[in-house]
Amino acid sequence: MKLSQLQQGQKATIIGFEQLSNDVRKKLMVMGLLPQTPVRLVRRAPMGDPLQVEVRGISLAVRTNIADSIVVEKS
């Protein structure tokens, strides 16, 4: 399942990344989006982009096209 497919308030664990450049992957990891890390979708922006996610107690905004490349497993 993709991070972008979660519903508001749902929790999941990041499994890995698909089709992301190394630069984008590194930026996500620096922000705390690492494999085996719990994540929660807080909400979507009114037009659907970006998504607000919470990782390790920190709130982040992630573009939908990037969230489509983050593979998660629902908790």
Rank of each mutant, 00 (worst) to 15 (best):
S4Y: 05
S4E: 03
S4N: 09
S4A: 09
L6D: 02
L6K: 04
L6T: 00
Q8M: 07
G9H: 02
G9Q: 05
Q10N: 08
K11N: 08
A12Q: 04
A12E: 09
T13G: 05
T13D: 11
I14S: 04
I14V: 12
I14D: 02
I15R: 12
G16Q: 01
G16L: 06
F17C: 06
E18I: 02
Q19G: 05
Q19E: 08
L20G: 04
L20A: 00
S21Q: 02
N22G: 09
K26R: 14
K26N: 13
K27N: 13
K27Y: 08
K27A: 15
K27S: 14
K27E: 11
L28A: 08
L28K: 05
M29V: 04
V30Y: 13
V30W: 10
M31N: 13
L33C: 06
L33D: 00
L34H: 09
P35F: 07
Q36A: 13
Q36M: 10
T37P: 01
T37K: 11
P38L: 02
P38C: 03
P38K: 07
P38H: 04
V39D: 08
V39T: 07
R40W: 10
L41A: 07
L41H: 04
V42P: 06
R43V: 05
R44T: 13
P46V: 08
P46I: 11
M47N: 15
M47Y: 15
G48V: 10
P50W: 10
Q52K: 14
V53C: 06
V53T: 01
V53Q: 05
E54F: 09
R56T: 13
G57E: 10
I58Y: 11
S59T: 15
S59G: 12
S59I: 14
L60R: 09
L60E: 01
A61W: 15
V62C: 10
V62H: 03
V62W: 01
R63N: 14
T64M: 06
N65V: 06
I66Y: 00
I66A: 06
A67V: 08
D68P: 00
I70T: 09
I70E: 04
I70Q: 05
I70R: 07
V71N: 06
V71H: 11
V72T: 06
E73R: 14
E73I: 12
E73C: 11
E73K: 15
